[in-house]
Amino acid sequence: MELAVALGLIVFKVAFLIAILLLLPLPLTWVERKVAGHMQQRMGPMRVGWHGLLQPVADGIKLLTKEDHIPAEADRFLFKLAPILALAPPFVVFVAVPFGESISVLGTEITLYVSNMNVALLFVFAVIGIEVYGVIFGGWAANSKYAVLGSLRTCAQMISYEIPMGFAVIGVVMLAQSMSLLDIVRAQADVWNVVYQPVGFFVFFVAGLAEAQRIPFDLAEAEGDLGAGFHTEYSGIRFAFFMVSEYAIVLLVSVLVVILFFGGWNGVLVPLPPLLWFVLKVAFFVYLFIWFRFTFPRYRYDQLMAIGWKVLLPLSMANIIITGVLLGAVGAP
């Protein structure tokens, strides 16, 4: 009986998580277009629903009913596989991500995470690494020069930026003495990691921007020179898959930044429910992503690589060394 309840709870949590991740891009596209509009002194979508609130629904219906076109020369199997490969990893990663300690419903304690892995951080990076396959296959299978160039750029970018991203979190792991995201958040109950690891936060956030392929690092889908990058040839629901995965990664990077550096659900000053604190912090970072997009221009490709290898990588290495030396000399804070 207990086993059945536990199993049912896990299934419910997974279904709930998938539903949230599939539905969240809808309001996010609306927010992004509204913020874009107002930053450019426009109003954004206004005609579908109150202030265009139903615009994402209309867009979704449009994408669902559009022709699902596959180019004649495309590799059909890879072409169909790529959107799923791009969509699955960001969803899988959230299995290891905690959203809070636990809440009690009807007398039973329900933990706000699907699983508390002791190697959660490793799992997260391993699974994000798979995401690049969707991009490579999508670009290659479409048999279009724009798509191939876009996917080449994307995989070079993602592989280069995963290294500083991985190094940047080592300082956090050293402080928490654990790779479990839950323990990392618990270790930040008094002081957030961003105080001890400002450089680590900076490197992680910039690498996260690059990983999510957002401006100023959206070389992969530079509209001006590549059409739309690796998903140039995609249409209809397959294109929607790529869009959902893009927003899921934005969300994932925001969640990771909050968990690793901004204390997760630990609040300061204002006593709010932990889950609300968590949501507020994540919302701020998602907004930051959108804000950056409509403020900064795009980097040139060589600049992108130079930032990744010549700035972020040495910075993250120095961060590890300094953190280690301080931990050895002064001891854990």
């Binding site: 930053m39 426009r42 109003m43 950056f292 403020t295 900064f296």
Partner: peptide, 24 residues
Amino acid sequence: DLANGLALTFGYMFSRPVTMQYPD
């Protein structure tokens, strides 16, 4: 410099839109 740019766009976000709501 980046903060300046961000502050500028943030200010614009709360400025009045210049578009006309034509024809609604």
